[in-house]
Design a protein around this nucleic acid. Sequence first.
DNA 1: GCAACGCATGCAATCGTAGTGCATTATTTC
DNA 2: GAAATAATGCACTACGATTGCATGCGTTGC
Lengths: 137, 137
Amino acid sequence: MKELEKQLQEKQIKPTAMRLVVLDYLLKQTSAVSLTDMEVSLKKTDRVTLYRTVKTFEEHGLVHRVEDGTGVTKFALCQPDCTANGHHDLHIHFYCTNCKETHCLPRTHIPEIMLPDGYDRQEINLLVKGLCAACKK
Amino acid sequence: MKELEKQLQEKQIKPTAMRLVVLDYLLKQTSAVSLTDMEVSLKKTDRVTLYRTVKTFEEHGLVHRVEDGTGVTKFALCQPDCTANGHHDLHIHFYCTNCKETHCLPRTHIPEIMLPDGYDRQEINLLVKGLCAACKK
DNA sequence: GCAACGCATGCAATCGTAGTGCATTATTTC
DNA sequence: GAAATAATGCACTACGATTGCATGCGTTGC
């Protein structure tokens, strides 16, 4: 359990009981989760507290927001090199149209994008939809 | 005005008064619009009717859905080669963090994406966030 | 040890968008 | 022109995001 606390403190997040529970939960996930997912899995937790917890995590570079086109915001743990100053999650997000799960594909990288003159890039979001490896079988 | 009707009929959409108004509005836009945008601009229109109108348009390949990470669905006219059988809007969508507008960049194209083994691609969504040409000045 | 402070938590409530059901109106077909 | 079909408008529901406020808890200074 000390390990969890350490992870929070490395990101300058005070390790409260709630936060440890949420971090522990996130570490166990294989796909990005919505607030509702968390709320259902972690009984006895208030939705708003979860909302603020992941918000804190996000602000400190521990989780990143995943937009998968469902209109529901999902969250997943960041790569270790993310900080409060900026996220570096330049990987592909994959939404499976069958199982409805959204996976981070951290081994992938986003190719160079050419923008028209005058456009200034700050962030890139690449979402691929299709069938995941498990559902394709 | 006959021109508008023709555009609808080419996509097998019956040209009603409402639909002509919506198409006319969409043709005048330089960025993707939300239902609320339409509702505000087109007075006297019911939100649900708009909702169903763009849904019809989408099903017939006249408009495509734009996901810009704001959680609000936006719509923009398709390229001419889209049909009811499939959209071919493989261009970049650009969300300006300053003016909050979302532009289609039809001249761009999405580079080849390498997915891990087992993943089956059906659709790609590439969203770039930053400053648009107008806001960068 | 305790008082004061700040931050975290939980509850209630609000807001905005998406979506459905149904009655009414318009349009097409014969 | 009447019947059938499709489109429209209104009422209402569902749900996620978000804020305000009161309470709880942990830390610090004395």
